[in-house]
Design a protein around this nucleic acid. Structure first.
Lengths: 256, 256
DNA sequence: TTATCTGTATCGTATAGTGGTACATTCCGT
DNA sequence: ACGGAATGTACCACTATACGATACAGATAA
């Protein structure tokens, strides 16, 4: 019913609050003060201070040099560093192979809330125009190829909760209407390929597909490139991507 | 002793419990069942199930393919991936420079509890014998060069709580006595360099130094190599390391 | 069959987290 | 120099909240 932002919905309240604080901290890599966090997550400062204090003890957050510099802490790195390798390493060889074959950049990414996060990248050795995004970068999911193929894995009706109420417009090709996005995702589901035609960055297009049933969840592989190289070769890149996916699924023993 | 494992000591109980569950999961990268977790962290299964449930909602843990496959989840990656880059990227160029200059592997690591975790690595292009440890790997801190220089940053009396009661012996050069370790650390503090003479792995020696006051905490830079190349050149490598540290401190505007 | 795992659900209880309120500092723009 | 508004830290009565014993369905094994 209507009402409130009882979005929490389930689980232990402190934990969902702590998680929200961590997500908030992660967005602002400059660091935040207790008060800033409190107003961003809409909780009393005293409550935030206790939770942050607890997270600090565990190393999940850390004080920066000065005041108002609370940030994501090293415990996060140490836990993630180990598991991140488990995630990336098995797929890495296939990214390299695909990248070498096409001589284009290939990215590995996952969904984090309504954003795509890039976990790994194989750069092409090509000179001249190359599309590169940083590992660790976040893109709004609705605006890029890997995001769209990851979103396509969800039920139609669960998307509304997942996505923000308003879809940001990044270029004039960005899909900002939920209905239009649903139509697009339907196409993605049937083709197995998502295409981004300058929807995130002018001049850059991309294709992507999804790898499901990985031991740690679902990831996307994408190939971004200058639109000029993409035009006319859409099919070529899509097929290479699907072939790579097939190879990965087979090699890692994923069903589907 | 006395009593209980009230090691928690501070913070919110659920959070320290959740953190312990996460650390436990991270150690066993194969995944664990609720019951297994429960017995490892010594909590009732129902309690573990609620906490794990809450963590699952937030994406911090995820179910693996089958049963008894609870693991670290993608939310961890997505938060860490972004912040990890913030941590590594500013230092990376200097690692590369040092690695190129010496033609040896250079590692970046941090302390996680009583372990060292490797966050980044520049491999030498040298043929033949090269010392490589995986990014994400964990070494007991007392047994390796980066670990010793990170431990040297602590007060003498706080070490006893930080380290496990018994120091594991990995080779017959490993320091397993706390007193002896304290003496060694005193030397590390005065010289600014920690040396590992086959204390972690037979045949491998290493030097390391510490970078303090980084925006996200403290890290170590280390150069592992076959003992045969290290012998007689200790000073050469130590000086290169200190010079690199100076350069980093200056470039990143860290005091000290 | 029984025994032992798996994950899931229920529910009365009191513990554990909550958040108002207050304080010492420090850094602003008066 | 002076408020005013930040900062982080601390206290504490209240009751909502997390706790964990207990139970159930399903799977696997002996």
């Amino acid at each position: 019913m209507s009402e409130s932002s009882k979005d929490t919905s389930s689980g232990i309240r402190v934990i969902s609050r702590a998680a929200e604080i961590l997500r908030t901290l992660n967005d602002q890599s400059r660091g935040l003060s207790l008060g800033q966090i409190a107003s961003l997550v809409e909780l009393p400062r005293s409550t935030v201070q206790r939770i942050v204090g607890a997270l600090k003890v565990e190393g999940f957050v850390i004080d920066g040099p000065g005041e108002s510099q609370i940030r994501i802490g090293p415990a996060f790195f140490s836990i993630a560093a180990a598991s991140l390798s488990d995630f990336k390493d098995p797929i890495r060889p296939y990214l390299e192979e695909l990248s070498g074959e096409l001589d284009e950049t290939v990215d590995l990414s996952i969904l984090s809330g309504s954003s795509v996060v890039f976990l790994d990248q194989c750069s092409s050795r090509r000179k001249g125009l190359v599309a590169v995004s940083e590992v660790g970068a976040r893109f709004p999911a609705h605006s890029c190829a890997p995001g769209k193929c990851l979103l396509a894995e969800f039920e139609e009706n669960s998307l509304a909760q997942l996505l923000p109420p308003k879809l940001d417009q990044l270029t004039n090709a960005t899909i900002t209407d939920l209905e239009a996005l649903q139509v697009e995702l339907k196409k993605v589901r049937s083709e197995g390929i998502a295409t981004d035609r300058q929807e995130h960055t002018d001049g850059i297009s991309a294709v992507a597909t999804v790898i499901t049933n990985l031991p740690r969840g679902t990831a996307a592989i994408s190939i971004p490139m200058p639109t000029q190289r993409f035009k006319g070769n859409e099919k070529h890149y899509a097929e290479a991507l699907l072939a790579a996916r097939e190879k990965i699924n087979h090699a890692l023993g994923l069903n589907r």
